[in-house]
Simulated scan of single mutants.
Amino acid sequence: MSSVRDYGYREVPDREGGAAARGWWDDNADEYLDDHGGFLAGELRWGPEGLTESEARLLGDVAGRDVLEIGAGAAQCSRWLAEQGAHVVATDVSGAMLREGRDRAPAGAGVPLVQADARALPFAAASFDVVFTSFGAIPFVPDAARVHAEAARVLRAGGRWVFSVTHPLRWAFPDDPTAAGLTATRSYFDRRPYVETDDTGRVAYAEYHRTVGDHVREIAGAGLRLADLVEPEWPDWNTGVWGGWGPERGRRLPGTAVFVTHKD
């Protein structure tokens, strides 16, 4: 695995930034799941705050419904939904994440796994009642409008597209879960991605910032209707730290935004 040579906020060619996610998640799947797999197991969580689908009910009644998860990682969310009676398919761009999900799944708890780019889903139009992702796909591509368009295409009329991302406000602050992360150091309107390059100069990781307005315009551009925007508060029970998320800062600033949309 190549080491990180440089990192920061800067423009990179869309082709390079958009292609980086697959390799990064392939290289880091095992370590990521070792660190966070316990927190993610056994429930659909919408973000590091710990808000669960059983609490929020953002997907509606999924029993008997056809559900697609994009950016599924190891498919923990999909497996939980299958236990609720949904007919679920999980997709991710990273083959390594999907393999880890298959290998780590409890016996008899598997769901269909498909390696696919969320910008070009290999499914027919109007195939699903619900499409969702928890922190998947959207942050890692420069052209998230294509993700929304694909979600809308494969949804049936009346279906839901629900996605969670880092709260856009958080991009103005350092990635620090302590009080040091409570002072804004960048412009909220600076849309340059966060980029890491490896020791060969290749873009190894890219994460893209969009304002709240950007997300809303992309939703509308896909012909979808925004029904709700959920900003989970940090709960008292959660004392864990996950990157820039933690209780000290989480009780003061939002860390996750969950957009609930409908296809009319």
Rank of each mutant, 00 (worst) to 15 (best):
V162L: 04
G101R: 00
E43A: 09
A184V: 09
E100L: 06
W161P: 00
G71R: 02
V165N: 12
I70S: 01
A227M: 13
A137H: 05
A151M: 08
A180S: 13
D236C: 02
V147F: 06
D190F: 12
Q84S: 09
V88F: 05
G95T: 12
D198P: 06
R160V: 04
Y208A: 01
A152R: 14
A19K: 07
N238D: 10
A107F: 03
A125P: 02
A149Y: 03
T256V: 15
G223T: 07
Y9L: 08
P232S: 10
L155T: 07
G223L: 08
P174T: 14
D27G: 02
E150Q: 07
A75F: 08
A109Q: 12
A20Q: 06
P112V: 10
T52R: 15
R252G: 02
R251H: 11
R22H: 01
R170G: 02
A149G: 09
E55M: 07
V195D: 07
G243C: 04
F39R: 14
R104W: 11
M1L: 10
T256L: 07
A41T: 05
H36T: 06
P193R: 06
H262Q: 11
E31K: 10
R217W: 11
V131P: 03
S54I: 11
L51D: 01
V212D: 06
F132P: 01
E55G: 07
V216T: 09
D143K: 04
D6C: 13
V195I: 13
A144T: 10
R153Q: 06
S54D: 15
S2T: 13
W161R: 01
R102P: 05
R102F: 13
A109D: 14
R10L: 09
G42E: 08
V114Q: 05
Y188D: 01
D27H: 08
L58K: 09
L121D: 09
T185L: 09
G37L: 04
Q84M: 12
T91P: 03
G8E: 00
N28L: 02
R99A: 15
R146S: 12
L68M: 05
T183G: 07
P106I: 00
R170C: 02
D6G: 12
